[in-house]
Design a protein around this nucleic acid. Structure first.
Lengths: 351, 351
DNA sequence: CTGAAAGCGCTTACAG
DNA sequence: CTGAAAGCGCTTACAG
């Protein structure tokens, strides 16, 4: 009924319920330590007044904000959106709130974003990628804030990771292609600077090729993320003109792969007959594309959920955040097959 | 140097700088009202101690949290991710933080999410879709919290909207198809319950068809959002078997459209020769799909940015949030053409 | 230009 | 089981 009064606080409720503010507070936070009758009165009064505790006051008093921060490269990439979504869902259900801040793909300037979000009250952090900046590392170490990094997996004493093995995932894809008979491949990578995931995939590609003696079949094309739908096409054109012997293209993102395939169509290249293409991520779209994309499925939602649980464990039970290596999966669909035998090189024994 | 001390506060800085806490506070917030010398000392001390103001204390004292909340259906849909991204970017740059909470597509239970986010301190709100729940409406009205809803546009005295005209957008697509010669169409819609955008698009479809005397050519297929990649395919199969005369399919999401086209392939239906398909959203993927999708481009990022600015205007300058109708665009690509003339119905004059 | 002090709303020892 | 009171860290009239 009281219409214009700002907002009820503990005192208002206490007065209305005829008890002290201590009792009001206890009724909400440690109900067992309040008599049933008083508790009842408090709840009624609170309901009547539309009371809800002031989060700032609570945070100040408790030295605990119930805020968790996520610093991610971008929300525009479905995998990050998916991870963030799962993270947020899990945390919201447990009474936490999540701040998300996007920071681009270059981890070299993550420090500012992290500082900002911590200064805004985040008491735990989800990050993406390996944390290499020494200033960030020591900041995290000194500040002692529970944090976890995702998408990468590596043994790091100060920043545990809940991610997957980018190197191994790529290696698996490359070995699959080698088994199929491919000897000359190109990788379409995102910007490598400050992005350990891209770097790991590149190494996975190079070293696997080399391990199979295919030193001459290694081509790396680095593309930016802007207008991703063009980048794959650009890369494909470059491959077509500069590396005509390439029979398989390993893309570090499904968007690259799909737009590369689209470009193949324009170039008159059949996928997979003329050229095989594999992606990375396993976006939803990959299955309805034709040819359906062979790609590496990434545990995006699982990373988000797992990270959420670990961080809450750290916050509420003081548990250390444990690193976890989640699995990826090579999903073989229609965009890969045995290579065409280039006309000039047909050798009877191979047929 | 002081290593294990929790965190410096105003008193620590004041002591180190040899001034009072009032001066410390002023040095940061109203620097002109502090002598240059004192200011200097304060900044040095603060830097030394790694001081940053406690946001909870600040919020409590100022009765202002610098937190803005966004309640969106899902982050997994690229358009929402894109809007949220733009919203967040704009606000973060201005010193605000954003809480995002996802709530599913049915606005009938948005109230809880809104209450929760407000109780967590949000001082302004971005919502999605028309707010019809009377309880939510009166909550927003009483609480006087600046808020804006997106994706829908409608004159609403209590919840201004920064969105677009779903009805008109669909109407435009349908008229385009009619002009092409289509007389029998199906709409593939998301769940209509509690989703005014879907409802508006359905009305746009039905009424436009009727306005052209095509009452018999109206088919609505309602699909859920779960596993969206299946839904379009399911719908397409249903159309194929139950409404064989349909020559154009209007999908209320690109995911529906793309998976419908994929299903056409399986069904042996050529797009657009045998059947035209139009989407909604203009996802990135639509251009690399073959056929490239004719669809309705939605101003996702623009809504986010615009909403951010409006909310900040309301918060800082007390400006009322003004509704704004942003434009959509029918982007005609390859998935639409004149209809095939069903064999049984060929009439010489029409050819 | 500067400082002492009150107060934002909450929780929790401390007494009883 | 309950209450009075201190204190979390900050800002801002109010004095000077």
């Amino acid at each position: 009924m009281k219409s214009q009064k700002a907002k009820a606080n503990v005192f208002d409720v206490a007065k209305a319920a005829g008890v002290s503010v201590a009792t009001v507070s206890r009724a909400f936070n440690i109900p067992d330590r309040v008599g049933a009758e008083a508790r009842e009165k408090v709840f009624n009064a609170a309901m009547q007044l539309g009371y809800s505790p002031n989060p700032a006051a609570k945070a100040l008093r408790l030295q605990k904000s119930f805020i968790i921060g996520a610093v991610i490269p971008s929300l525009d990439y479905s995998m990050f959106a998916r991870m963030t979504h799962a993270f947020e869902e899990q945390l919201t259900a447990a009474g936490y709130s999540v701040f998300v801040v996007t920071n681009g793909f270059d981890n070299r300037n993550m420090l500012d974003a992290v500082k900002k979000i911590v200064e805004r009250g985040a008491e735990a952090l989800l990050l993406v990628g390996k944390i290499e900046d020494p200033r960030l590392r020591s900041y995290l170490e000194e500040t002692q804030i529970p944090c976890v990094t995702t998408y990468s997996y590596n043994e790091d004493p100060i920043v545990p990771s809940i991610g997957f093995d980018n190197y191994a995932a790529t290696k698996q894809a490359v070995e699959f292609l080698i088994r199929l008979g491919h000897r000359n491949m190109a990788m379409v990578a995102g910007p490598l600077q400050g992005n350990d995931r891209q770097q790991a995939r590149m190494r996975g590609f190079e070293e696997t090729m080399r391990a199979h003696g295919l030193n001459d079949g290694i081509h790396i094309i680095e593309k930016s993320y802007g207008a991703a739908m063009m980048q794959g096409a650009d890369a494909m054109r470059q491959i077509y003109y500069e590396f005509p012997d390439v029979t398989a293209v390993v893309c570090n993102a499904d968007v690259f792969a799909l737009s590369a395939i689209a470009e193949c169509r324009r170039l008159g290249l059949r996928v997979p007959e003329d050229i095989s293409v594999v992606g990375f991520d396993d976006d939803d779209y990959t299955t309805i594309f034709s040819p359906a994309l062979t790609t590496i499925a990434v545990p995006a939602a699982e990373m988000g959920r797992h990270a959420a649980r670990s961080l809450m464990g750290a916050l509420t039970a003081g548990r250390r955040v444990m690193s976890a290596r989640l699995d990826t999966q090579l999903v073989v669909r229609e965009s890969t097959s045995v290579p065409r035998i280039a006309a000039a090189k047909i050798s009877p024994e191979v047929a």
